[in-house]
Computed example of a mutant assay.
Amino acid sequence: MKNEQQEKRLQASSDKLTAELETAKKQPVVAAAPLTDPKSDAERDGYMLGQSIASNAVVQLQMVKDTGLTISLEQLIAGFSTQLQTGTSVMNSEEMSRRYAAMQEAINKNMGSLIEKGYARLNKQLDKRKSLLTQNGVHWFTVKSVNAKLIPEQQVQVSVKVSTLSGKVINDFADDKVVFDNTLPPLLYEGMSLTGTGGAVEGWALAKDIFEREPLPPWVAPYDVIHYQLAIK
């Protein structure tokens, strides 16, 4: 009964935040300006920095939403705009610090539950499959088998795509010439060691288990399921 009530509270908070987002989109006051292609270096650097800041904020907002906390999206935008434009705040620093600490505590308190749900989603991808290797939280599987594995110093063409379970692409490159040795990034070396020319493997893991070995963008949450796809020509 307790879990059911918690799920209902989380769903209600999620629905409220979604409704606020839809309402905000319809209000001219917060409507985004028409997209224009930045021309000068200063404009393009400014646009790049804006995208980077927004990407950092996305995961924080998502974690707040997933934790079940209720916030006003309109005031979130107002707080960002005021700080960016004037460097001032209508709230004093003591209240800001107190509220931030309380929000962070609530997120940390619920992180364990979010991690458990992440593992549950991960396990659905692993169910009834025989792994090639499970190491440091990564579960590797054969996608296309080959007779011979790579040998040290062998040069091959490698394609890699890293994405979240929801389909957001983290990294995607094709036909890069790579020399197979232990100076490669850990997950790339690990995946390549399991196959050979003409083969393909895939790895599944929770983001929190590969943060130290695989660089992930700031918008990836610790409980996101990561899919690592590797093919060798």
Rank of each mutant, 00 (worst) to 15 (best):
S159I: 07
Q125S: 05
H139S: 10
G118R: 04
M111Q: 14
L122M: 09
L114S: 07
Q157A: 09
N123E: 11
Q157Y: 05
N123T: 03
I115P: 06
D127C: 08
I151K: 15
E153F: 12
L133T: 06
Q157G: 08
T142W: 00
L133G: 02
T134V: 09
G137V: 02
K128F: 07
S131G: 09
R129P: 08
K144N: 11
V143T: 10
Q155W: 01
G112S: 08
T142V: 10
H139L: 07
S131I: 02
I115S: 02
R129C: 06
G137P: 10
Q135P: 02
K117Q: 08
K149R: 15
H139C: 05
Y119A: 00
V138C: 05
F141S: 08
S113T: 14
I151C: 02
L122Y: 14
K130Y: 00
N147I: 01
L133W: 01
N147D: 15
K128S: 12
T134A: 11
H139P: 10
K124I: 02
Q125H: 13
K144C: 03
K124Q: 11
V158F: 03
K144S: 08
Q135F: 02
L114H: 06
W140Y: 14
A148Q: 15
L122V: 02
F141Y: 15
N147E: 13
K117V: 03
L114F: 04
P152E: 05
K149S: 13
S113I: 13
D127V: 10
L122E: 09
L150G: 07
T142A: 11
W140C: 12
V160W: 01
K117P: 01
N110W: 01
G137L: 07
I115Y: 13
I115F: 12
M111R: 12
A148W: 00
G112A: 06
L122K: 11
G112N: 13
V158I: 07
K124F: 00
N123W: 08
K128W: 00
Q135E: 14
K144W: 01
G112T: 12
R129H: 10
L114Y: 02
V160Q: 14
T134W: 04
V160A: 04
V146G: 11
T134P: 00
K149G: 14
R129M: 09
W140V: 12
E116R: 08
G112Q: 03
V143F: 01
L126V: 04
Q157T: 05
N123F: 05
V156R: 05
V156C: 12
Q157L: 12
V156N: 02
G112D: 14
G112F: 13
E153K: 11
Q155E: 10
L122F: 14
P152Y: 05
K144G: 00
S131C: 11
L133Q: 07
H139G: 04
Q155A: 07
I151T: 15
W140H: 04
